[in-house]
Design a binder for these strands. Structure first.
Length: 423
RNA sequence: GGAGAGAUGGCCGAGUGGUCGAAGGCGCACGCCUGGAAAGUGUGUAUACUCCAAAAGGGUAUCAUGGGUUCGAAUCCCAUUCUCUCCGCCA
């Protein structure tokens, strides 16, 4: 959520910047400014009324103490009148404030200055790449074929037990999952992140704070009896640690990492993009979250991208890094880098991590602040990214490291798997 | 699930209708003291919105949350949520 004072001070700038995200903000900004003006007018009147009310109440108290009950009684008429008026006015104010809030949550975050203009993924800028795409003279299989060939992945069984998008991992396939989770967590801890084990279900307030509610409600699994949501990412519980918190400057940088299963309904997904492990309803992910001083957040973002690159290098996967264009960025992000790995069996690039700086956008919504040099409270910046999401990493690992007679495990992972070949 | 007790500032804790945004203590910040530190001592120390060109200063709201009674609520009433204790159940 954008801060109202920024909109008030420079509405033209907001409209201009949001155009980079192909978002037409004119009418919303106009509505917000009007509502804000109305709100402040009402607030001024209401406060004056309440102030008078408070003053009279005190005077009446003094009169009673002095035994002047009849004088006090006369003043009560005025307070009753004030009470009725202020009641009506505060209802009106609530309404205006709610309307303003509804408009405010419609505005996406402003893109950072270096975000390239553009409409689609094709307009993204590739800013880095590495690793080698395998060149072999035998046919490379997609991971779903490799999965059944070596008995490590079972999609049909998942359909029987739960439904599409809930595969089972078996034998070395299951052990590979466990190894990757531990590998990612250990690497993050070595890089200075604090490990957390969060709840997998969250309440409404948490889902709202990270922006899943109200508009992405349909994307989450929901347990109505207890009004709890299954998390779509560990970002939700981990970022919510800091909801309604005022940090000290010395708390920065806050670096957290968490493994969790992630649950996504993926309503509306279909077709070839959802084949195999490419898109699932339940998957494993290790997520990194940083809370940063506003002056440092872009430095932190670069650091996070560099960190994920080291992971991809250790897994010996061909990758590329894209700086997202305005049109491809998410609602809350100010700058996003997508990390993609090449899946040689499908001949496709798969997104395995999306690392974003949200600046103060999330922090504003969940009131995450810190005391700055002058002792004033100021919004902190939040950042997060996958490091990494397992299914597409597994897909790419299987497809790129396949041999005619099995699948090679990269050296960095062997201490975690306990084996170096799947056949 | 049943019965009972409770929820006050960063923390502990006082406060049962007015002078209470809230005693006292701890913590923290700054100063004094000291060669330096500790101890001691003094001062300060919630958040949001808003008025004012800004600073200074003022107003309003907030004692779990929402509603009610009252001229006036941290204090009384109702509902909700959460915590603790005991009983039951249980990996």
């Amino acid at each position: 959520m954008l801060q109202i004072n920024i909109i008030r001070d420079n509405p033209g700038y907001i409209i201009e910047r949001l155009a980079i995200k192909n978002f037409k903000a004119e009418s919303i900004v106009e509505n917000i400014l009007q509502l804000d003006k109305k709100r402040r007018e009402l607030l001024k009147l209401l406060d004056a009324m309440l102030a008078e009310s408070n003053r009279l109440a005190k005077e009446i108290g003094v009169l009673y103490q002095q035994g002047k009950a009849d004088e006090a009684g006369k003043m009560k008429a005025r307070t009753a009148e004030l009470k009725e008026q202020s009641g009506l006015m505060s209802e009106e104010l609530d309404q205006v404030q709610q309307q303003m809030q509804e408009e405010l949550v419609l505005l996406p975050n402003l893109p950072a200055a270096i975000v390239p203009p553009g409409k689609h993924a094709e307009d993204n800028e590739i800013v880095n790449h590495g690793g080698k795409v395998p060149e072999v003279d035998w046919p490379l299989l997609p991971h779903w074929d490799l999965g059944s060939k070596y008995g490590i992945l079972d999609f049909e069984l998942g359909v029987k037990i739960t439904g599409a998008g809930f595969p089972l991992y078996r034998g070395k396939g299951a052990r590979l999952q466990r190894a990757l989770i531990n590998f990612f967590l250990d690497e993050a801890v070595k890089a200075g992140y604090t490990e957390y084990q969060p709840p997998y279900v969250v309440n409404e307030a948490s889902a709202f704070a990270t922006g899943q509610l109200p508009d992405k409600e349909g994307q989450m699994y929901f347990a109505p009896v207890d009004k709890l949501y299954l998390i779509p990412t560990a970002e939700v519980p981990i970022t919510n640690i800091y909801r309604d918190v005022i940090l000290k400057q010395t708390d920065f940088p806050l670096k957290n990492v968490a493994y969790s299963a992630c649950f996504r309904r993926e309503a509306g997904s279909y077709g070839k993009d959802v084949r195999g492990l490419n898109r699932l309803h339940q998957f494993d992910k290790v997520e990194i979250v940083q809370i940063s001083h506003p002056d440092k957040s872009y430095q932190v973002l670069d650091e996070m991208v560099e960190y994920v690159i080291t992971l991809l290098n250790k897994l010996e996967l061909p990758f590329r890094v894209a700086k997202l264009c305005g049109g491809d960025m998410s609602f809350a992000s100010a700058l996003t880098y997508d990390m993609e790995v090449f899946a040689a069996g499908q001949q496709k690039w798969l997104e395995v991590s999306s690392i974003s700086n949200f600046e103060a956008f999330q922090a504003n919504r969940m009131k995450l602040r810190f005391k700055n040099e002058e002792g004033k409270t100021e919004l902190a910046h939040t950042l997060n990214g996958s490091a990494l999401a397992l299914p597409r990493i597994v897909a790419s690992l299987l497809e790129n490291h396949q041999q005619p007679d099995g699948i090679r495990i990269p050296d960095a992972l062997v201490p975690y798997t306990g084996f170096n070949f799947i056949n």
